[in-house]
Nucleic acid binder design. Structure first.
Length: 465
RNA sequence: GGCGCCAUAGCCAAGCGGUAAGGCAAAGGUCUGCAACACCUCCAUCCCCAGUUCGAUUCUGGGUGGCGCCUCCA
């Protein structure tokens, strides 16, 4: 397995700390709103990375946090007239609604900042003891100048960062690069007791503290969007490595942006589509398909038209999947022919090609093309004369590969309401009597109800539009 | 100013030293009462210029055109 490591700026062979096991952490959402598809990309990408690692035999512990203590949440609570806790609980719930629809598996754990305050305080204390943090009247800052490796992830020198930094007026920090580890309580904000007085943690410290608690001091993979490289991940390194003196993460994996008209989609720019909104017109699996059809590091432009392309492509996968189910239900032949035996033996090439391409820095675009090649093969090789074992072999390889990507996972709807079933019967009778006018009328009528009919050699089939 | 990314068919998108995967769309065909699905056929020399090489979309240099980070952001 090769992964592009932001730290070294090249693809590297992945070697876990502990043989057969992977510890990975990905930054999760700040839960103050529905998430947008820019947020969805890392969720999907790291879900696929995790699935693939598991597929290839690793035991993966995957942590994705919820940031539930944050300015944006506090603002939202004021706007909605509810407590910050109510805001975060609401959007954690909504996160799972959307994540489930996107086919994202639950992480091994979804830790919350609010439940790790003691660990956060401990880490800040350690940093203070090591001279890497300083307290000014209840606000504790990280002393960036004291951490020599600062900038190693974002490839910036402290001096360059300083020259590019915007100057805050009346800033009490020693350097514009210093960032808050602990923020002194302000009126109307949630707070916790600490050695520095009442207050709450800064943004970056949570990931360092929770990662350490749940995965240990050094982890295998840390992931997130490219926009987190600086300052968030740079700061995490400063905190984690500063406090324990060991490497924080061996592989830093970052996904590219989602753009609208070639410009980055972001909440601050306002040019974003929430996943919830897209769910009104598309099955969210199309979003997953859309994102996985491109390599995770390349920027992708988003539009409804492009999403429709992905949805149509996904449909092709489902057609093949359901066709095999259909044929299996009817298959009477259990005897595998010699020709089928030869064909079954060739299926392994798809699996090999799939794994090879996924092992090359999770090239899902290429992996999907392998699946489409498999689909063409299945469609042309399997028919009503195929034996059960041949059909099962096709179905197995198809499921195995699509499951790794989390695509085409849904089963066909089988319950048809009586009225529709009756209409289909009537249409069949009309067709038999060559009353095509009537049969076409019924077909149109069903289409209006969202039922698409297809007359095949093997009989009439229906599906939801 | 510092750091970094990208430019492949109508659209999307892999490949990254040996003469261009896949999807969507379009066109022609097979199947079908028609349609749909499926299948077959067809659709590019890879932004420009100069190097390196037997050979470059793929490496190097220079252009041109986009984009991102350096401030909250996935």
């Amino acid at each position: 397995m090769k992964l592009y490591n932001t730290l070294t700026q090249k693809k590297e062979t992945f070697i876990p700390i502990e043989k057969g096991k992977v510890r990975m952490y990905a930054c999760g959402p700040t839960v103050y709103n529905y998430f947008h598809i820019g947020n969805a990309r890392p969720f999907i990408v790291f879900d696929v990375l995790r699935r693939f690692l598991e597929y290839t035999g690793y035991e993966v512990t995957f942590i994705q946090n919820f940031t539930d203590v944050d300015d944006k949440i506090i603002n939202r609570s004021h706007e909605e007239g509810i407590t910050p806790k109510e805001v975060s609980e609401k959007y954690i719930h909504e996160y799972f609604v959307d994540a489930d629809a996107l086919g994202i598996h639950r992480a091994s754990a979804h830790p919350k900042v609010s439940e790790h305050i003691p660990e956060i305080i401990d880490m800040i204390k350690t940093l203070e003891e090591k001279g890497l943090a300083y307290n000014i009247d209840g606000n504790v800052y990280y002393h960036v100048d004291q951490f020599k490796a600062y900038g190693k992830l974002s490839k910036q020198s402290i001096d360059d960062l300083k020259s590019g930094a915007r100057i805050d007026i009346n800033d009490e920090k020693k350097s514009p690069l210093d960032f808050a580890l602990w923020k002194k309580k302000k009126a109307g904000e949630p707070y916790w007791e600490s050695p520095w007085g009442q207050g709450r943690p800064g943004w970056h410290i949570e990931c360092s503290a929770m990662s350490k608690k749940l995965l240990g001091e050094t982890i295998d993979i840390h992931g997130g969007g490219q926009d987190l490289i600086f300052p968030h991940h740079e700061n995490e390194i400063a905190q984690s490595e500063g406090s324990c003196g060991k490497p924080f993460a061996n592989y830093w994996v970052h996904n590219g942006y989602i753009n609208i008209d070639n410009e980055k989609m972001s909440k601050s720019k306002g040019n974003f589509f929430t996943v919830r909104d897209i769910a009104k017109t598309f099955d969210l699996e199309a979003v997953r398909m859309f994102l996985l059809m491109a390599h995770y590091r390349s920027p992708v432009n988003f539009s409804k038209a492009l999403l429709q392309q992905a949805a149509t492509a996904l449909e092709r996968l489902y057609t093949a999947k359901y066709q095999m189910v259909f044929l299996l239900e009817k298959a009477a032949n259990n005897m595998v022919s010699e020709a089928e035996k030869l064909w079954i033996a060739t299926l392994d090439q798809y699996k090999k090609a799939f794994i090879e391409t996924m092992e090359d820095d999770i090239n899902t675009a290429d992996a999907i093309s392998v699946i489409f090649e498999l689909v063409r093969d299945l469609n042309s090789s399997l028919d009503e004369h195929s034996s059960k074992p041949a059909l099962l072999a096709g179905q197995t390889i198809f499921r195995e590969l699509t499951d790794v990507l989390g695509l085409a996972v849904k089963d066909k709807e089988t319950n048809l309401d009586a009225e529709v079933a009756a209409l289909i019967e009537q249409r069949q009778a009309a067709r038999k009597a060559k009353d095509f006018k009537r049969s076409d009328e019924i077909r149109d009528e069903l289409l209006a109800k969202g039922i698409v009919l297809e007359d095949t050699r093997e009989g009439v089939k229906w599906k939801k539009a």
